[in-house]
Every structure is written in structure tokens, then in C-alpha cells.
Nucleic acid binder design. Sequence first.
DNA 1: GTCTATAGTCGGATAGAC
DNA 2: GTCTATCCGACTATAGAC
Lengths: 220, 220
Amino acid sequence: MAKKGNTHAPGTREHLLEAAIDVFGRHGFDSATTRMIAKAANVNIAAIPYYFGGKSGLYQAVIDYIVDHIKKEAGELLEQIGGATFTGDTGRQLARKLIQAVLERFINFIAGSEQGQRFSRIILREQMFPSPAYDTIFKGFLKPVLNALSILIMAASGESDPRQATFRAMTLMGQVVIFRVARETIVRGLDLEGYSPEELEEIRRVIVANALAITEMPSE
Amino acid sequence: MAKKGNTHAPGTREHLLEAAIDVFGRHGFDSATTRMIAKAANVNIAAIPYYFGGKSGLYQAVIDYIVDHIKKEAGELLEQIGGATFTGDTGRQLARKLIQAVLERFINFIAGSEQGQRFSRIILREQMFPSPAYDTIFKGFLKPVLNALSILIMAASGESDPRQATFRAMTLMGQVVIFRVARETIVRGLDLEGYSPEELEEIRRVIVANALAITEMPSE
DNA sequence: GTCTATAGTCGGATAGAC
DNA sequence: GTCTATCCGACTATAGAC
């Protein structure tokens, strides 16, 4: 069913993909070695050239895999935002609710879910050090998400300049991303052992409260 | 004067340090090669073992160099914060002014200055993927800065729980850091060519406005 | 102090047996 | 499809001439 119709082995390809997400994420493309990945996946090194054409092909497959998953995850919310119209005070309240929904999903994904943490390592690497694969990520979901957030901010705060709205959208994203990027600093600074569900809840509350404070109307 | 008293060559050591900041920053410790660094510094590869004991020694020297510079840069402001007392409404206003000052310096450093951009590549790498050198950075300035910001937030907003204050401090840092981490995404999303002085000024304004909105008293 | 030459290790990819 | 063996290039570090 899920197979592509050819006679591939049961799991080799998928094992490699999953292992590659972790190894590429932790070490980056250059330092990650095909030997590490093959070992982590419990398959033979020669399976990488065989299934993916080589190290680069495997990396691109990882990017496609991640982008697909995130598009599926975020798709519904993005469509909801794209399809909505924000007029009057009800529109404003709707926009604020949607901003809240986006940020909560984002923090849950990036700091709360195991898969989100694995994916975000690779995405953050591409943010700071774009490879040719960056384009797939940017077009796949970064740009749609950034656009959606900018629209919501304009609707919620009355901001009319799209560039200003984008800058504001970035600050909202930044409040979330920092808990992934500086995870170690937070954990050491507060002497934690990772984020507990309670701490995640506190973080979520702070982020939402900030977002609401930031998107007040200038007149309020 | 500044020399350590021995008879070293005029610039070889310094050239290596400067080049290493860029190469380690762009490629990470593992993927950076001593060949790249030596070539960028225009010195012989053998100078690296000679001056720094090897690749690892050079990396540690880079970390020390960066931490020293930033401590010098941030020291005055940190002392001012540590030495101040924040009582009553004047204290609150002072705290808000100081938060503003910290954020403005931070965004100028991280997105505005050439040196800050070079330094921050390495620091952000250590944030996401700590090496043994992380400790130097954490104790050197991350912890002091995070503490200072937390104190200011408690003074400015009336927040009394230190953990909550730390989370809030992180969100403020996140708003700044995102303009470095996601620089490429912002630039592509808005079709810019890097941040112009005008755009930096807009970003600075957004960050400060958000910080002020966030640190309102709950009663306000 | 600076260089060349080279030792020794580890990387990705391939050939060919099964 | 999966494996072993192997090629070849690139890496760090060192020895020793100058």
C-alpha cells in the first residue's frame, strides 16, 4: 500500500531516513558521516548510495521528508487563516485567537514533541547556514507561515505596513524559537533537567501573554 | 606591551585567531579544517600546532577571545544593573530604561556590527550544540546577562517568581536573536539585501516597543 | 619561526561476490 | 538487496631542514 510498487526491502530505506534526521541534525551535513548514519540505522553503508544515490541524495530526502510532515501538520491552520476575513472587532478578536493558536502549536512542536526537536535541529541549521536545500524549506512552509502570521498581526493590531508586520511576526517567532536554540542555557541557568510538562505550560503562558500584550491596538 | 613577553612573530597568531573565528563560525569545529583556517589567515598550517597546540587549542583560544571581548563590551552596563536598587515608581522606570538599553545594545551587536555577526555564529553554535567550551561562554557572560535581565524584569513588571522572570527574559532575548538566526528567511521573505541602517532602526523600534508592552505592570 | 614532506587516520563511493 | 574489500582523496599532526 504505502510501498512505491517496487520490490524494496521492508525497512532499510525508512531506517536510513530516520537515522539521518538525527545524525545530520546533530552534526551537520559535512561532519555527519555515512558510517555514523548506517550504524545508527543498523544497515550497511553501501545501502546509502544504493537507495539515495549518495550522501547528498540522502540529505535532500531528509529535507523533503521533514517539509512534508510539517506541511501536513500546519496545513489545516494555515488554510483556516488564509480563508478567513478579518473585519471589525470580531475579526480582530479572531486574529488574536489565531495568533495564539499558531504560537501554541509552534512551542509544543519545537520544545514539547520529540519529533519536533529532531526536525528543528535541521531546520535551524538551514536557517543559520543555508544549503541548496534551504529553498525547499523556505517555500515549503517558512514563507507561508511568515505570511500568515503577518496577516494576523495586521488584522489584530491595525498595523498597515507589511514590512513592519513581518518584523513583528519575527519577534513572535523568536520568542518561541529561543526556547529551542537556547535550551541548554535555560536548563543550566534554572538548573532544570529539560522542560517538564509544567514548565512547558509556564512557557506557553508567557509566550501567549506577551503576544497578546504586543498585539494590543495602539489606541488601547 | 600587549605582547606576552616572548619573541613571537608580529601577526601570525592574531591572523590565525581572526580567521578561525570565521571558519569555525561558518563550518563548526568538526567540519572546519586547519587547512581552511591557515589559508584564510595566510599562514602555514604548521603554525596552528605551533601556536595553539593544535586545532582544539585554537578553538579554545577563539572562545576565550570572544568571551573577553563581550565581557568588556557588556561589563559597564552589567555593573550598572548590579549596583542599582529599584524601589518605587522611579525604580520601575529605571528598570524599563535599562531593559531598553540592554536590548538596543544586543540588537546592534548581533545584527548591526560586523564583529557581532562573526562572534554570534560561534556563540549560537555553542547554544545549540554545546562543546566543552560552552562553559566558558555560559559563565563568562550568558549567565550574568540572563540574571541581570531577570532582575530588571522583576523590577519593571512586579513579577516576583524568579523562574517566571527568567522565562520572560528569554522571550526578550529571543526577539533579538531571531533576527540573527533567521536572517536569511527575513531577507528572502522581504526581498532585502541584508539589513540596511533604516531597517535596523525599524527592528530596534519594534523590539523596544514590544519590550515595553511586555513589561507593563499587570494592573495597567 | 616558518617551511616541506610525510606518516597515519578516516572520509565517500564503487566493484563484484553472494 | 546486501555484503566485503578496496580505492582514493582529505584530514591532523609531526619531523626535520632552513
